[in-house]
Each structure stands twice: as structure tokens, then as C-alpha cells.
């Protein structure tokens, strides 16, 4: 670890899960907004505006994680192992937890 690199290293360590947290929050927030403003009824090509709006943060989050994974070794050298695991956590969590956007109905009631 570089002498003054503690905070930077911590930043890299939490980068992956932070990307997931932001993507997850955005997706959930956009889901609520879309249901309020009637986005499921607006078609954008083959999908609804709602589904597209929710999928975009997931896609962006995954791409950011991939981009950071490509750079982590260069940035941190031998201290890259743990941050790399963190980035994998972010990538897998983003793809897995937001995957339902591909299949589930967007604003249907969940009970009753």
C-alpha cells in the first residue's frame, strides 16, 4: 500500500459495492417515478420507457464496474486484490439484483 494511499485504497475497495448501491437506488427510485408518471405505457422501440429507464442504471453500473476492473491493477499494483474482489461484488450484485427488470411486470400489484 502506498504510504499516503490509505483513503484512496479504501475508495477503490468500496467502489464496486457503491456502484451497486447507486444503481439499485436509482432503479428503485425510477421505478416509483415511472409508475406515478405512466411510463409503462410509453413505448421506446420494443420496450417500454419504464423498463428502459430502470435498465439503464443497471447497465451503466455494470459497465462502470467492468471499466474499473480493467484499471484496478494499474492503479493499485500489488494491493489490488481486495479492491478487485469488491468490484466483482459490485458487478455481480448489480446484474443479479436488477435482472428482474428483464422479466417482471413493472407496476402490477404484488399482492391480491
Amino acid at each position: 500500500m502506498r504510504p499516503a494511499g490509505g483513503v484512496l485504497w479504501l475508495g477503490w475497495l468500496i467502489a464496486g459495492p457503491t456502484v451497486w448501491a447507486v444503481a439499485f437506488s436509482l432503479a428503485y427510485g425510477l421505478h416509483g417515478m415511472g409508475c406515478e408518471f405512466g411510463w409503462p405505457a410509453v413505448a421506446v422501440g420494443p420496450v417500454s420507457l419504464h423498463r428502459l429507464a430502470i435498465a439503464l442504471p443497471a447497465l451503466a453500473g455494470a459497465l462502470i464496474c467492468l471499466g474499473l476492473l480493467a484499471r484496478v491493477k494499474t492503479a493499485l499494483g500489488p494491493e489490488a486484490d481486495l479492491p478487485r474482489l469488491g468490484l466483482w461484488i459490485g458487478l455481480v450484485a448489480t446484474l443479479f439484483s436488477l435482472a428482474p427488470v428483464l422479466v417482471a411486470t413493472s407496476c402490477g400489484p404484488g399482492l391480491g
Partner: peptide
């Protein structure tokens, strides 16, 4: 509590 399907799935 009646949350939409998609949010439940997330």
C-alpha cells in the same frame, strides 16, 4: 403491503 411486482423482485 402491496408493492409492485418488479420492486418485490429486486
Amino acid at each position: 403491503v402491496g408493492i409492485p411486482h418488479l420492486a418485490l423482485a429486486f
